[in-house]
Computed example of a mutant assay.
Amino acid sequence: MRAFESENLILSQLADPELLDLERILEPLLLPRDFELVHLGTPVSHYYFLENGIASMVATSPEGRKAEIGVLGRDGMSPPALTMHREQFSFDVMMQVGGHGRRVEAGALECFLADRPAVRRLLSRFLHTFFVQVANTALSNAVHKIDVRLAKWILMCHDRLEGEEIEITHEYMATMLGVRRSSVTDALHVLEGQHLIYSTRGVVIIRNRASLEAFAADAYNVPGISGRDWPQTRRRPLVMYN
């Protein structure tokens, strides 16, 4: 029997002895919206394995403007780094949709990984997949309209959550996409007009997943972004790293 069952896809792939050893240094905790996993310019003190909820990696300009550059959920580890040498982290990572998970102190994880190359390779594959996502997000920001980018972003959140509802405000979406709130409102109206989603105060509800994917097209349907080619995990696909 396994040490514990986890919704996190990295933890779920560990062999029983590895999972049992890691369980001893993992701390379960709630992760409410706006909880900071790591702050810009500070060292990484803990690594988080989300089991529900969504974290955003956010870049900040010298003038203080912010934009999301990556989405993290139960598919990986937050923050997406493996330095563990107390260097300052270059981005904010915070919960944009509240949830829960487990965390481990950075030094304890470093010791755990020291003689476990298979686990380190698993984390390295996750990091590669995550930075493919970051690169595709940068491309999408340059070549796609806001309504397409929003559709892609909603799909990526949907992949990492249970149910059809995403609790998120227009203001938060504007910050994550690096656009004005009015632009998000206009884009939501486009998606609602095509009956792809329903948007109300603080909540976006998926109405037609397949049509939303078709609308997002090549912004979403690329390796490292799309769930279409990922093996099934419960209701929806999420990327696996083995």
Rank of each mutant, 00 (worst) to 15 (best):
E7V: 00
L123G: 09
L29Y: 12
A3D: 09
L31G: 05
I69H: 01
R235C: 08
L30A: 14
A108V: 10
H46F: 14
E164L: 02
S45M: 14
R121M: 11
L50F: 01
I205M: 14
I225T: 09
E63R: 13
E192Y: 00
M77E: 02
H46V: 10
V184I: 15
D75W: 04
L19W: 06
L19I: 09
L191R: 08
M57N: 03
R201E: 10
V58T: 14
A15I: 09
A187N: 05
L122E: 10
R181H: 08
V44R: 11
T169L: 07
L139N: 09
V239G: 00
T175Q: 04
S12E: 12
L191V: 09
E27P: 02
A106P: 11
Y241H: 04
L9A: 05
A138S: 14
Y220H: 04
I206G: 07
P80C: 06
A187G: 02
G224F: 13
R207I: 06
R74A: 14
F112H: 08
L212C: 03
S182D: 02
L72F: 04
A214N: 06
R74H: 01
G178C: 06
P79T: 08
D186R: 15
T200N: 03
I197C: 02
L40R: 11
P237R: 08
F4L: 12
V93K: 11
E23Q: 15
F4Q: 07
A142Q: 13
A106G: 07
S182M: 03
A135S: 13
N208S: 05
K145E: 15
G101A: 07
I168K: 02
T200A: 10
S78N: 10
S78K: 10
V179N: 01
